[in-house]
């Protein structure tokens, strides 16, 4: 199963995509993904339920979050009410160690995203803060990467022996599925996703998207 693990909808301040249009787009353009995870900036979207849309289009639609730490932005998969109580998702100065620890405690997974990006990527902060404890997975393919940002991410993953995921970081409909993660198992829920990430059997992929 192939999931785009990093996408934003209109729920994010800079997101311009409606979720139903992501679904339509994936089907109309035969984008090679089986679903996606909405990782809204600095929040977990408690309100929206995409089950009907997912069923209608035969896609897996899950929710996560993208939070901000001293090491840059971090995707969170497996968000629970208890995890939301553990730290303030809106805080743009979260300590990464606190985020990782809370995720471990509450059965979630934290994944630094676009780590090769200036300022908001983990690699840029290693010299200042050192290699953080507890990171096991980073995003090595990001659809919004510019220049050598993905190469830096892949080098970081190789150096630190991290696993790599892929996500489009889509903010508009037509950017969904540019990068994704391939799993050997089916994933239909947050719990399935967390399990699959913890088994570390997956690989980041870049998809050729026709214009």
């Amino acid at each position: 199963m192939i999931l785009d693990l990093h996408a934003h909808s209109v729920k994010s301040d800079d997101g311009r995509a409606k979720v139903q249009n992501y679904c339509q787009w994936i089907k109309a353009r035969n984008i090679g993904i089986d679903g996606f995870v909405l990782t809204e900036h600095r929040q977990f979207d408690d309100q929206s339920n995409y089950d009907d849309l997912a069923e209608k289009h035969g896609l897996t639609i899950l929710k996560g979050s993208e939070v901000e730490t001293e090491y840059g932005h971090v995707l969170i998969f497996g968000v629970t009410p208890a995890l939301q109580q553990a730290f303030d998702f809106t805080n743009i100065h979260l300590p990464l160690a606190e985020v990782i620890s809370a995720c471990e405690q509450h059965g979630a997974v934290a994944v630094p995203c676009h780590p090769g990006r200036k300022r908001v990527g983990m690699a840029a902060h290693l010299e200042t803060f050192g290699v953080p404890e507890g990171v096991e997975i980073v995003e090595v393919f990001n659809g919004g990467s510019r220049g050598d940002e993905d190469k830096i991410a892949q080098q970081l993953a190789e150096d630190q022996q991290y696993m790599g995921i892929g996500g489009s970081d889509a903010h508009i409909v037509s950017h969904i599925g540019r990068c994704a993660t391939e799993f050997p198992v089916d994933i239909f829920s947050q719990q399935d996703l967390v399990c699959a990430l913890k088994t570390k059997k997956f690989k980041a992929i870049k998809l050729a998207v026709e214009a």
């Binding site: 900036h41 600095r42 840059g72 932005h73 743009i92 990006r117 200036k118 908001v120």
Partner: peptide
């Protein structure tokens, strides 16, 4: 009015 971090550090919008 809101704040976030970006490629260029802390930003106020």
């Amino acid at each position: 009015i809101y704040t976030k971090t970006g490629r260029s550090g802390r930003m106020i919008f």
